[in-house]
Simulated assay, not measured.
Amino acid sequence: MASQAPAQQLVTVFGGSGFVGRHVVRALVKRGYRVRVAVRRPDLANFLQPLGTVGQIHAVQANLRYPASVAAAVKGTDAVVNLVGIMQEQGRQSFPAVQANGARAVAQACAAAGIARVVQVSALGASAESASAYARSKAEGEAAMFASVPGAVVLRPSVMFGPEDTFFNRFASLARMLPVVPLVGDGVTKFQPAFVGDVAEIVARAVDGTVQGGRVYELGGPEVQSLREIVEEVCKVTGRKRLLAPLPFPLARIMGSVLQVADTLTLGLIPDELVMTRDQVTLLASDNVVSAEAKAEGRDFAGLGLAPTSSEAVITSYLWRFRKTGQFDALQAR
């Protein structure tokens, strides 16, 4: 645990303007930390300013593909958090470049600067043996982090939910757009959705120094749900009665390849909700839940002393906008 008070410490957060980042920044500034938000476009991170007091949050330019910018971003800081990740490759933003080499650049910059408190947010399912390029790059990023900063804290959350998520919101949007919602693999894949606010709290505790370093923590919510159960819950909350149609994995892989090419050729004009890549289909072939080993060793929410929030308690607060008459449709959606 650091000897200085939070107000005397500076924390650099890579990817601080993203979905997870804004919650991590909020958790840190509530503790009193000064936060340096390292992003590719600092001008798009100004919305974070109201989360703290005057001068408490400062955005700087950094790109994980350029080690010099990473080194400049960690200079003079007491702790570093790396949240940068992508779900789909686009141009130079490839999985190896961002999630493997990017994490390596952060780790090496921290090691050179003598920064020991480092938090790497990875993903549940990360594995060097995975058939998914996304999962393999996440595992490579973890290994690179430990190679340079052995005492780093690595967090592997399951799919996360919150107002700006791209999971529950995506299915709610699909249910609004389509009369039939396809379920890859008949929706049998298991998930353990984690509230982004809970993950941010663990990140902040790791920055505090109260989370043991040199370990990988798996963070999943209180419920294990199949993809079908999740979509059914979304439809119930949004008041949409939709047919859920099974989409076999072989056909889903073909569709993923076609949609990925089409999205590239149209320069991203296809709505995000309809874009699915072959690698994402590959990810859906494996369950995304906390392992028995992590539970037994206390490397989960329970072991960290936090009771995770259920999706049922949160998603209604932001999925109401997908109802036919918005928040005024509350009674009908029950």
Rank of each mutant, 00 (worst) to 15 (best):
M1H: 13
M1W: 05
S3G: 00
P6Y: 03
A7R: 10
Q8F: 00
G15R: 06
G16N: 08
V25L: 06
R26L: 12
R26G: 02
L28I: 05
R31T: 09
R31Y: 10
Y33D: 02
R40H: 06
Q49W: 07
G52C: 07
T53R: 14
Q56I: 01
A59T: 08
A59L: 02
Q61P: 00
A62D: 03
A62F: 03
N63Q: 14
Y66E: 15
D78L: 01
N82L: 00
M87N: 09
R92C: 00
P96F: 01
V106F: 05
A116I: 07
R117S: 08
V118G: 06
A126T: 05
S127H: 05
E129N: 11
A135D: 15
K138M: 09
G141S: 11
A144E: 11
M145V: 12
F146Q: 04
A147L: 02
V149P: 03
P150F: 09
V153P: 02
V159G: 15
V159N: 14
F161E: 01
D165K: 03
T166V: 06
T166S: 15
F168P: 02
V181I: 11
D186G: 14
F191S: 04
F191V: 01
Q192N: 06
F195K: 06
A200V: 12
I202E: 02
R205V: 03
E218I: 10
G220F: 04
G221A: 06
V224T: 15
S226G: 12
L227S: 13
K236N: 10
V237I: 15
T238L: 05
L243K: 15
L243A: 13
P248A: 09
P250S: 07
A252F: 11
R253W: 05
V258W: 07
V258A: 10
D263H: 14
L269P: 02
I270P: 12
P271T: 08
Q280Y: 09
L284W: 04
S286A: 13
A292R: 14
A294V: 14
E297V: 01
G298R: 14
R299M: 01
G303D: 08
L304Y: 08
S311G: 14
E312C: 02
E312G: 03
V314I: 15
I315N: 09
Y318G: 08
G326V: 04
D329K: 07
L331E: 15
L331P: 01
Q332D: 01
R334D: 07
